[in-house]
């Protein structure tokens, strides 16, 4: 995601010209902070738009006026919106997301564990998919327009069309049920050994890898191709450099930025992908927690999960932008 924006509160012109790199990075940081704030407003306001009153929905048939009033004051719904927003945001910044309406437990405690589980899953999916995607992308470029490239293209086209749950259940059917070499559901619990944990997440990780791999590989291929078709690659060849040396010395420094960008974008995608995969594998992560909360309209949990997912997504996108800025020699070495 390329966020282009006019700088707000721009530092003096001369300073920006002397350190364009720093200026741009600061601008991106500021922009992301602004974006996060706006997103928090959006998520909070969403709940305010709740048609009818939560208390009424919550109590269902037994909603006497007195009971509704009690619930409202108990949940703090009787105070002005702005007060509640700033209170919510202030607490959220300190890691306190309030109390779940459904279970009356602390949301933060629940999320603490589950966020760790989700990140654990996403981390291993990234660990496998990133190198694999880059390798396949390089292969596709190397065999450009020849058979291996075409095969990779067709398969990846099919792969981006597959819904996560389809891949998930397919893997479960074959590897957990028919062959019995993997475990389902992917239960993890506290005090579980590291190896046990890895075994438990084998299938969800595989699903995530398959989901994200095709996207990442196709984008990597495009990024490398655009670098390989540059005039300076021809210069390198006409200098008598071998293909390998030309790639290492001339293509790589220019391809790293777009590839890193692709990776960061897909990591953001991965974080969202965990939602469905967790539901499929009954994995105790953030995604499942959020989906459950949405079904019972447990708003504090929905808000908290929404904010955290959005924050991770925004931060990864910001990282992609900043890496692209840092890798640009024009900005690193101003005139």
């Amino acid at each position: 995601m390329a966020i282009t924006s006019e700088p707000s509160g721009a530092p003096p012109r001369r300073w920006r010209e002397r350190f364009p790199l720093l200026a741009l990075i600061l601008q991106r940081l500021g922009l992301s902070a602004l974006l996060l704030l706006a997103v928090s407003v959006l998520i909070f306001a969403g709940v305010e738009a709740l048609p009818g009153d939560f208390a009424t929905t919550y109590l269902g048939q037994s909603a006497t006026p007195q009971a509704v009033a009690n619930i409202r004051s108990e949940l703090g719904l009787d105070r002005p919106v702005t007060t509640r927003y700033f209170e919510w945001l202030g607490n959220a910044l300190q890691g306190d997301f309030g109390t779940s309406w459904a279970s009356r437990n602390s949301v933060s405690e629940q999320i603490g564990n589950r966020l760790g589980n989700s990140l654990f899953l996403a981390f291993f999916a990234a660990l496998i998919s990133v190198p694999l995607a880059i390798l396949l992308g390089l292969l596709a470029v190397h065999y450009r327009n020849r058979l291996p490239d075409k095969i990779i293209n067709v398969i990846s086209l099919a792969a981006i069309s597959l819904p996560e749950f389809f891949i998930g259940y397919l893997l479960i059917l074959y590897f957990a049920v028919n062959f019995g070499i993997a475990t389902f559901p992917a239960t993890v619990f506290e005090g579980m050994g590291f190896v046990e944990r890895l075994k438990a997440i084998a299938l969800p990780t595989a699903t995530l890898v398959l989901v994200v791999l095709a996207h990442m590989m196709r984008m990597t291929r495009a990024a490398i191709l655009s670098v390989m078709s540059s005039a300076y690659m021809e210069t390198a060849e006409l200098k008598g450099l071998g293909a390998f040396r030309a790639i290492v010395k001339h293509a790589a420094p220019n391809a790293i930025a777009p590839i890193v960008n692709v990776v960061a974008l897909n990591l953001a995608y991965l974080v969202v992908g965990v939602v469905v995969v967790e539901v499929v594998f009954v994995y105790p992560g953030m995604g499942q927690y959020m989906v459950d909360a949405v079904t019972v309209r447990d708003m504090p949990v929905v808000q908290a999960c929404g904010l955290i997912f959005a924050a991770i997504y925004i931060l990864l996108n910001m990282a992609a932008d900043i890496l692209a800025i840092v890798a640009n020699p024009r900005l690193r070495h101003p005139r």
Partner: peptide
């Protein structure tokens, strides 16, 4: 400017997450 900035904001939240939040309410 106005439309594009608002669009950037909307796109900064992953679609599925956004949909979950909204569908929890509506």
């Amino acid at each position: 400017m106005g439309l594009s900035r608002f669009n950037d904001l909307m796109m900064s939240i992953p679609t599925l997450i956004f949909a979950l939040v909204v569908l929890a309410v509506l």
